[in-house]
Design a protein around this nucleic acid. Sequence first.
DNA 1: CATGAATGAGCTTTCATTCAT
DNA 2: GATGAATGAAAGCTCATTCAT
Lengths: 199, 199, 199, 199
Amino acid sequence: MEEKMSRRERKKIQSKQTILQAAVHVFSTKGFQETSIADIMNQADLGIGTFYNYFESKEDVLKCLLKSVVEEICQAFEKFVEDKCAPADILEKTVMLSARLLSENRFVLPLFLSAANLSGMPEGSAELPAEPSAFKLLFNRIIASGQDSGAFREDIPTEVVTELFHSMFQAASFSSLPMGFEENIRLKLQLVLDGLRAR
Amino acid sequence: MEEKMSRRERKKIQSKQTILQAAVHVFSTKGFQETSIADIMNQADLGIGTFYNYFESKEDVLKCLLKSVVEEICQAFEKFVEDKCAPADILEKTVMLSARLLSENRFVLPLFLSAANLSGMPEGSAELPAEPSAFKLLFNRIIASGQDSGAFREDIPTEVVTELFHSMFQAASFSSLPMGFEENIRLKLQLVLDGLRAR
Amino acid sequence: MEEKMSRRERKKIQSKQTILQAAVHVFSTKGFQETSIADIMNQADLGIGTFYNYFESKEDVLKCLLKSVVEEICQAFEKFVEDKCAPADILEKTVMLSARLLSENRFVLPLFLSAANLSGMPEGSAELPAEPSAFKLLFNRIIASGQDSGAFREDIPTEVVTELFHSMFQAASFSSLPMGFEENIRLKLQLVLDGLRAR
Amino acid sequence: MEEKMSRRERKKIQSKQTILQAAVHVFSTKGFQETSIADIMNQADLGIGTFYNYFESKEDVLKCLLKSVVEEICQAFEKFVEDKCAPADILEKTVMLSARLLSENRFVLPLFLSAANLSGMPEGSAELPAEPSAFKLLFNRIIASGQDSGAFREDIPTEVVTELFHSMFQAASFSSLPMGFEENIRLKLQLVLDGLRAR
DNA sequence: CATGAATGAGCTTTCATTCAT
DNA sequence: GATGAATGAAAGCTCATTCAT
């Protein structure tokens, strides 16, 4: 049974959570690149060596953070599909849910993408794309189904639209505009959705 | 006369060019963050110390690269305005010119933005924004004039649209889609432009 | 109980001592300015990075070395005062104790002073004077009390005499005369003390 | 004839003087250690390479600066001897002349000594002692003659007294006391001279 | 499982020196 | 003789990673 864990197991999970929270805090404060593992563990009030009991690298932490976000979004999406929402509705709802979830950890997605992107993809293509691709696959599905049903125009390849949505999240994360993350996304969503609708 | 330079002066200018080209090459290959100054000068086949005769830092190189691109785009824009092109036309032409110019140095703009963004903005906001803001100002002008003339919808704030265009360039730079940089931009431009037009 | 320390803690303290001793040795051999941190850690047979677990810079090592010397001298001085020694006696004893303590680390005081002095005082005046001023204050006290009691002449300002004693230590440190550090100080002390006595 | 020099020769000397003056200025401002050769030549408004036409190193500049000072003092001393001044008089006059000459270039002597001293004498003993020893020899002569004539006490070795005078100059150079260089020297001279006189 | 001292590769930066012009 | 671009050795310092405790 899942709820049965030894004290040790619970403590182990506890430590991992502590580190994740500390990482979120320090990443938000100092930025990802500028954060050292010592910074994280210092914030977590744990020994440096302990980090390596739970993670392999800083990127690994990021992967872990993103994973939970992606999972929640996927679950919601499945629900929307079951409810037979219209494609445009599903897209809008999923985008805005993503916005809500990411607004608190707004550095997660972009940093994750950036970690892969900006590094010129040294070996990133092998290591990181685990979760981002889940994200992309999800959006591909939504948009493709909208195109199939005739709700969305088809002259723009599905993946291009997906990429555009991605970049919206990324840009919103670092926006300095005088509005919140979600509002930023909402406005761009309107624009793109209007452009995307079949005439 | 300008063409009158001593051999020495010519050589100096050539060295700077050599370094810039080497930097472009290495940044494209290894990524900006992962590139060391030694990497650049090794590629340039020059001594490490020589770097500091021309630049103060890696960021300085980026600034230099972007500067020339921005200047060229600005000049073209002024020309479009003189020719009294329609706002949508100006936007399209400017975007596509930017795409063409950046396609060769596709890492320049996004890395430049990212350098400021991803670093958690330690002091980046003070140092780097010189040129990106020129970029933003240009697009703000184009879009605002389109909104004033009634060509573009006004319910989306100008700066939000600008930000969206920015993110398009950024995303296209690192796209792994099976199409060129310019084609990538062209498709998204269509989408956004359709969404942007007043009904 | 103080003697209760984990093995680890003891080892840590021992490492610091090892580094200090290595520094003393290399400073004496190569001089302070010419000594690199790599030199010290090489002599200590420890990794370079280890240095920064214990000290912030070369100057920090110096500060640490001087600190213990100054503290010991101060304690002795307090004792002399309690014993109601005559000012000339206190001066002589303190000078000779300083000589004895410094004779082993004879480079400590002068280098410390020099580090501040010779660097053209870039920011040295803010960082280093912590301990030297303790030294100066101590001598000022001794000499002033001698002047107050009528034992020492008063036509020479206290601080000037202090400065003279300082320079004696400095000079003796680098003397190439065929006599020991302490003998060097003893002779000059006689000379200056005779000049200092009120007629 | 000396006054007959080719234009070239005059220009050559001019450049050397320019460099020396620039060096004096920059040394005084930034300190010796912190001054780079580029700093000097920048101040001199001459090309960096030109430095090596006249000097071999920064230390060479120092040597050159001290040389002229020492020569002038030696000449004055010879004059005092011819005038059959008393030893104490000669000592006082020579010290005060040295003080006057050095007060303008107060960094010259101490830096020169320090350059040799603080470096732990790596190879300094071979390169630098050229001029300082002239200085020491001069003072040795003065004091020894005073001791021979019975004017000065003989229980302090000549060289020890010389060393004490040296350290006076050094200390005065970096004194932060609220008095001028010469006044500083004058006060200490009184003290030491009184201690030095035979009883 | 937790620890943190030890490590050294690797980075940026400085600067004396050379040499072709 | 004057120049200053090119150079690379050498410095200080950071930090991910290991491992004995």
